[in-house]
Design a protein around this nucleic acid. Sequence first.
DNA 1: CTCTATGCAAAAACTTTGCAGGGAT
DNA 2: ATCCCTGCAAAGTTTTTGCATAGAG
Lengths: 118, 118
Amino acid sequence: MIKEKGLSYTQAREELIDLLLHASTPLSYDNIKNSLSMDKATFYRNTALFEAAEIISSFESNDKKRYYFIEQNLHPHFICTNCNSIECLKEDIIYALNGYKIESITIKGLCPRCQKNE
Amino acid sequence: MIKEKGLSYTQAREELIDLLLHASTPLSYDNIKNSLSMDKATFYRNTALFEAAEIISSFESNDKKRYYFIEQNLHPHFICTNCNSIECLKEDIIYALNGYKIESITIKGLCPRCQKNE
DNA sequence: CTCTATGCAAAAACTTTGCAGGGAT
DNA sequence: ATCCCTGCAAAGTTTTTGCATAGAG
């Protein structure tokens, strides 16, 4: 997959792809720093590279960048402003916005648990 | 408006409300630091306060927080990953997500101009 | 008069960059 | 052998915090 995009294969890149591919939710550097064997500079350089190659996408939440694999079915990510949890929403809300190319959708608000406890 | 939410009135708060109220697009501290008469600490303290009071809402883009007035019609904000422009989208994509309370919607991608020049 | 808001400066949190050495082809 | 990748450390950016003073009620 790495080579398909014209990037050279390295162990760090494989490790990163692997982590993101199997993640159930978008990951920040902070989320995985303990299980990463690479330096943060390498993490950030490679996520930037993968993003440019359209292998992964990202959004920002709580001053952190979160990265996730681009999949066929673009699904929105939900960020709870109360408990700060991140969720992948099932609904595929792919509306064609005239002329726009959509890469990611992020929704902020209260998740069901937090809304209940208001 | 400030007092309605139980906050005390100050000149800095009025200035801030005024700027955000008349902005055509969400603003970051960086965007308006030159026209602000308050310190950045005051800016951030008050935006946090207004956000808690549900007067304004925010999202993050390019490592910066952007703030905007909460309006009746919740409209999505579009962030172009190429030219970094921010746009308010007209379409009111207010889908009731079962159990979730939606506070803001952010869409990243390519704006029409940038997509054309690809 | 009291209690909160503000400015300033310093700190914190996250990400990026420079450079020298290591690894891929 | 060459050129790109990586780690380390230092710098950069944005936001937050501590503290003394100014301002609102």
